[in-house]
Computed example of a mutant assay.
Amino acid sequence: MGTQDMGYFSYHNGEWIHLGLFYGDGGDALQIGDKIYIIIGGRLRQIDNIQAKRYSSCHPPTGTNPFTAKLYKHPIDSTLYYVGYQLWHYHEESWTDLSKGLGNRLQMIMDIDINHQNPNQMFFAYDQPTWNSKKLSGKFFKSINGGESWIDITQNLPILAWHYVTSISSNPSNLNEIYVSLGKMDDSYLNKVYQSVDGGTTWKNISAEIPPFETFKIEHIPNSSGVILASLGGLFYKNDKLDQWIRLEGKIPPIAIRD
């Protein structure tokens, strides 16, 4: 877990351990096998274990180092993705810019989705709306060959003129079923979650009973039809037998949950 100024803490054998040698602004972190990847001050580092006394730099060859970059694990071969202003894939100690050819832009990639059963299907989305209903392009992309090439599907989701994708989740058991959560506050009409059942060609608004606040993360529950949504108003749940979302209560307070 990364923290501001204080580096990282690791939860190990029932207790939190401070990685005291790695001070600075801690960002995302990910463990793959015996390797631990951490982002300190916007730069990607690798350590071998939580007792490590030194790190090695493995930052992608990019001129940017956003503090809010994210790390993702390939669902099958355990390679690494670095998601910042570009989408980078780290394989055999070599980086490949999968977003090359989409133009140089200082816009954060909000999320990527790699289907767990068929990782050749990928989606990613940039921050911010298009701010123009007649210019629906450059915000939402799909690949069917593992990121070698991309199809711009922004126009398939016209709400991206005024909202932006915060999270993407495809069903591991059904490639064609995809959910996206959307940022930005709503006033009278809810635009919080959209669902596609044809691989991203068409979309349906399924936002009933979600508060008009920002949503941050959406995830399929493995081996079920259930989906969990994290929002400014708490956690929500829906499955294929429910017509609308229900708030998860009990020990979970209705507070902002971002992941």
Rank of each mutant, 00 (worst) to 15 (best):
D77K: 05
S78F: 08
S78R: 13
L80R: 04
Y81G: 09
Y81L: 10
Y82S: 08
Y82A: 12
G84A: 03
G84R: 02
G84E: 02
Y85S: 01
Y85W: 03
Y85H: 10
Q86V: 00
H89S: 09
H89C: 09
H89G: 00
Y90A: 03
Y90I: 03
H91A: 09
H91M: 03
E92D: 15
E92Y: 13
E92G: 02
E93F: 04
S94Q: 15
S94W: 05
W95V: 12
T96N: 13
T96Y: 09
L98T: 00
S99H: 00
S99P: 00
K100D: 13
K100W: 11
K100I: 07
G101R: 01
G101H: 02
G101E: 00
L102N: 03
L102S: 03
G103R: 02
G103W: 05
N104I: 07
L106Q: 10
Q107K: 10
M108I: 05
I109T: 11
M110F: 02
D111T: 10
D111E: 12
D111L: 09
I112V: 14
D113R: 10
I114F: 01
I114Y: 01
N115Y: 05
N115V: 05
N115A: 07
N115P: 03
H116Q: 15
H116L: 12
Q117A: 07
P119I: 04
N120A: 12
N120K: 14
N120C: 07
Q121H: 15
Q121L: 14
Q121K: 13
Q121T: 15
M122K: 13
M122N: 11
A125P: 06
Y126D: 06
Y126L: 13
D127R: 10
D127W: 11
D127T: 07
D127G: 00
Q128A: 10
Q128S: 11
Q128H: 12
Q128K: 14
T130M: 03
T130C: 02
W131S: 09
W131Y: 14
W131G: 01
N132G: 11
S133V: 08
K134R: 13
K134A: 09
S137G: 02
G138Q: 08
